[in-house]
Computed example of a mutant assay.
Amino acid sequence: MEILRYVAFSTDPAGGNPAGVVLDASGASERDLLAVAAEVGFSETAFVVPVGEGVLDVRYFSPLAEVPFCGHATIATAVAYAERHGVGELVFRTKAGDVRVSTTRAEDGSVVATLVSVEPTTEELGADVLGELLGALRWSRDDLDPALPPRVAYAGARHPVIASATRERLAELAYDMPALAGLMARFEWTTVDLVWRESATVFHARNPFPPGGVVEDPATGAAAAAFGGYLRELQLVDVPCEVTVHQGYDMGRPGTIRVGIPADPGAGVSVTGTAVPYAG
C-alpha cells in the first residue's frame, strides 16, 4: 500500500490535523489496516477501495481501533484523490453511511474539499453521566457556559458537546486520560467536543481523543459536523448559516474548519477545508 500523509484544515504543513491516506487498500485485511494506522501514528488513517466511478469505500482507523467516520481524514483523502484524478464529486461509502464529498480548485491552485455529513442528531446527556464526564475532565459545573447546554451530538460519530464559559478554561486541558477513556468506551463516544463561543458564528474547540491513543485531536471535522447539527437543533444560531471553528491553537497546530448549517432539520451539515502534504 502506498501511504500518503496530509494535513487537513490548514494550508501550513505544520498546522491542522495530520492524517494518513491510502488511496487503494484493495485486498488488505482489517489486521493490515490497523497495523498501517499504528505505523503511521496519526489520530486517523483513511483506507480507500474504489468501487465505481466516483464511488469509494472508505474505512478509518486510529492507531488503536476503527472509527465509523472521520472528518479530517475525509478532507485529506478527497484532496489527495483530486490531486491524482482531478476535482469533482465523490461518494464516500463509510460505516456511518454515504457521505457526499466535492472538491474544487481555488484561485491559488490549491484544492478545497467539502463533505456533507449523514443526518445529524442530538441527545440528552444525563446529569450523572455529565458529572462523571466533568470529573474525568477535571472541570466543575461552574466552568460551563449555560447558553450552550451539554449534549451528545452525532453526524457520523458521537461526541459530547461541553461548552466552556471562558477561553481560559478551554486553554487548560489536563484531564484524567484513563478515566475519560473508560467513560468514552462505555458510551461509544469518539471525541469530546470542548467548545468556547467567541461570537455568534465563531467558535474555538478542543477534542480529547483517548480512544485514538492520543491526548488531543488537532482539528476534528466529524465533531464540527456534529456540532453544527447541535447548534441547529437547539436553535443556537440563525439558519441557514456558516460558522467557523478554530482548533489546534493551544497545541501549536492551528486549523480552521468552515461548517455550513442548512435550515432543513434533516439535512446533513457541510464541513469545508483545505489539505496539504504533511511535513514532519
Results as ranks from 00 to 15, higher is better:
Gly52Phe: 02
Met251Asp: 02
Pro18Leu: 08
Ala25Glu: 12
Phe227Ser: 11
Glu53Ile: 01
Ala38His: 04
Glu66Arg: 11
Glu44Val: 12
Pro178Glu: 05
Thr103Asp: 10
Arg258Gln: 09
Arg167Ile: 11
Ala147Leu: 12
Gly268Cys: 05
Asp143Val: 08
Val161Trp: 01
Pro277Val: 03
Val112Glu: 13
Pro68Ser: 03
Asp145Ala: 10
Val36Arg: 14
Val48Gln: 06
Leu130Tyr: 05
Gly27Trp: 07
Trp139Pro: 04
Cys241Gly: 06
Arg100Lys: 15
Asp24Trp: 03
Ser43Cys: 12
Val79Ser: 04
Gly182Ile: 02
Thr114Pro: 07
Ala113Ile: 07
Ala127Asn: 04
Phe203Ala: 08
Ala200Gln: 00
Ile162Gln: 06
Pro210Val: 03
Leu4Asp: 07
Arg59Lys: 06
Val79His: 07
Gly212Phe: 04
Glu107Arg: 13
Arg253Glu: 05
Val21Glu: 10
Arg151Glu: 13
Ala223Met: 12
Gln247Met: 13
Ser199Ile: 00
Val48Trp: 02
Ala78Gln: 12
Gly131Met: 05
Ile261His: 05
Cys241Gln: 01
Thr190Lys: 06
Gly268Leu: 10
Phe209Pro: 13
Phe61Pro: 04
Val129Trp: 01
Thr103Val: 12
Leu234Asp: 06
Glu119Trp: 02
Ser29Asn: 10
Ile162Gly: 09
Tyr230Ile: 05
Leu115Val: 04
Gly228Trp: 01
Phe61Tyr: 14
Val116Gln: 15
Leu173Pro: 10
Glu107Pro: 06
Gly266Pro: 03
Gly255Ala: 02
Leu34Asp: 10
Glu124Gly: 08
Ala46Met: 06
Ala8Asp: 10
Gly280Val: 01
Glu132Arg: 15
Ser199Glu: 01
Thr11Ser: 15
Asp128Phe: 06
Pro150Leu: 05
Gln247Asn: 11
Arg169Lys: 15
Pro120Cys: 09
Thr77Trp: 10
Phe61Ala: 10
